[in-house]
Amino acid sequence: MLSIENLSVTFKDRASGEDIRACDGISLNVEAGELVGLVGESGCGKSTLGRTIVGLERASAGRVLINGVDVLTLRGSRRRQARLQAQYIFQDPYTALTPSQTIGQAIDEALQIAGEHNARARMLRARSLMEEVGLPLDILERQPRELSGGQRQRVCIARSLVVEPKVLICDEPVSSLDVSIRAQIMNLFLKLRDEKGLAILFIAHDLAVVRQAASRVYVMYLGQIMEAGPSASVYSQPLHPYTQSLLSAVPDPDPRIERQRRRILLEGDVPSPARPPSGCRFRTRCPAAASICASEPPVMSIGEASAHCHFAGTVRLMPAA
């Protein structure tokens, strides 16, 4: 349903004039009725990738296929139509809504833009959308500030469903919500995946949330995919040293486990995407880096689970104290 091929996104840094390659040759795909995770730390390019898919950023190379059509090659109204099939859900549902509009007005406006000219049909549809995302009808009369964070995110999801999209790009959609509320929204995404057959690309830094929801996961670092595969194997047998260190950093809510816990602590910071390291991008922080890692870029290993590493699957980082 959604297929990204060799996508690159380059920005020009205003201050230095340098080219910053936020995404560098990314390929990934999401089937209908599938929720796929895209994880990585801040600055790795995962949000840029999501924004590029829906046309909020411009790709410098590659293809974005939605339902088999490369939306980057389309122009004008055909492009807009194709683009509507992929909707974006933001992290902060408050800034995504107009403060002075009631929820009903916001949904109505979206329906008008989508081409529904009959006011009564719009009202009926707005009501059924509320039901679909689990909100009471009186929410339509209220303004965003009167709603809780969870309710606002439901409204944003309802609004994205107005155009009956095939693909949802969710960018940290539960990070700003309280833990006890997150479950309600996550279960709503799972319901939409199952009942509407939506293809959902779920961008997040919370590895445990992604593991539970996603059938497959992509791990990104400094503009590239480091590892990809079914959640079951990526989380239990990570092939890439970066994935191994990410997983080792996830804290456990059991203090007895935490006291025994040894972690792989990475040294230093993520390098600037304007000047990525030669060879493997992770090598400057990789405890297992060898000389080949500086001289040659690794190729993606082939398999159900695959990794962008010269030593994919043969390296197992040992946690320090």
Binding site: I181, R182, N187
Partner: peptide, 8 residues
């Protein structure tokens, strides 16, 4: 894996 989310 794939379990529904539990919350309040």
């Amino acid at each position: 894996l794939g379990a529904p989310f539990r919350g309040l």
